[in-house]
């Protein structure tokens, strides 16, 4: 039985899709079978970030409405054979997602994959609630910025109230993933520090992803950062986060960019 991980945040633009793709690829690199589901119906983007936009034939809604079988809608990553994508529909709206349909799809995927990653849409509406519904684990992506922290707090409340786990009196295991962290701005006092965010939200840290131009480069190229540039600072940060998801206990660090020339000489896969 695979585990269901929801990557969520409340606020938009904080790095949910980037994180879902990067964590999914990192988990697949570690030898596990991973599927990432895009729940952002109407505004799908995971296919673009993963470079599979021209390979989408069927989507989640087609599967839920019975127009396609689940294996027909799954897209296998071209670079990492254990990584799959289930795209969202671009033309339908989120009302086409049904609770029953989502439950069935997740059950089927859980039976064959080690990790089912749900990339949540922004907001706290139906789409976001459906994305978190069956989660065992949640990665709450938060930027060191007040509105993002506030929205994360709201999402934590929903994870404790609206999920299947919550309804059974259990708890979704919640982790904080701080993204777009700028160490120099935090130490100059202009950005919330990690300890501040952890204290306010009071959930354990899964990782700190440093702000980096490499993330934009990776999405330009349509490749998760952990595949495109695994040695970059954010790449390494996502790899350690993936290890923690697998239960490894490793100290939290904020990776820094290594000397570029040195990196290239060592054969860094920067495209």
């Amino acid at each position: 039985m695979g585990q269901v991980l929801v990557v969520t945040s409340g606020k938009g633009g904080v790095g949910k899709t980037t994180s879902a793709a990067a964590l999914g690829a990192a988990l697949a690199e570690s030898g596990q079978n991973v599927v990432i589901i895009d729940f952002d119906v109407g505004l799908r983007n995971l296919d673009l970030v993963m470079g599979a936009e021209r390979r989408v034939v069927f989507d989640l809604i087609n599967v839920i409405q019975g127009q396609a079988k689940l294996p027909q809608a799954l897209i296998r990553d071209k670079r990492q054979e254990r990584l799959y994508l289930l795209p969202a529909s671009q033309t339908r709206d989120k009302d086409a997602l049904t609770e029953r349909g989502v439950a069935r799809v997740i059950d089927d995927l859980r039976a064959t994959f080690d990790w089912v990653i749900c990339d949540s849409p922004a907001g706290i509406e139906r789409g976001a609630i459906l994305a978190m519904q069956h989660a065992d684990i949640a990665a709450i992506v938060t930027n060191p910025e007040i509105s993002s922290v506030r929205d994360s707090d709201r999402i934590i409340g929903l994870l404790d109230a609206k999920t299947e786990k919550a309804k059974k009196g259990q708890q979704v295991v919640k982790h904080l993933l701080v993204a777009r962290y700028d160490e120099s701005r935090a130490s100059s006092g202009d950005m919330l520090q990690i300890e501040d965010i952890v204290e306010i939200l009071s959930i354990p840290l899964l990782g700190i992803i440093p702000e980096s131009e490499q993330v934009l480069r990776a999405s330009n190229l349509g490749s998760p950062i952990t595949i495109c540039n695994p040695e970059s600072a954010p790449g390494r940060a996502y790899f350690s986060a993936a290890k923690r998801l697998n239960g490894e206990v490793i100290p939290i660090t904020i990776p820094r960019e290594r000397n570029r020339l040195f990196g290239r000489l060592l054969g860094g896969r920067a495209a």
């Binding site: 007040i146 506030r150 707090d153 935090a186 006092g189 202009d190 919330l192 306010i200």
Partner: peptide, 21 residues
Amino acid sequence: RRRHTAQVAHDRLRILLAHER
């Protein structure tokens, strides 16, 4: 003054979230 912006953000959040929770 600049040193204080993160601290101000922290304090505002604590008060706001206690209320919202």
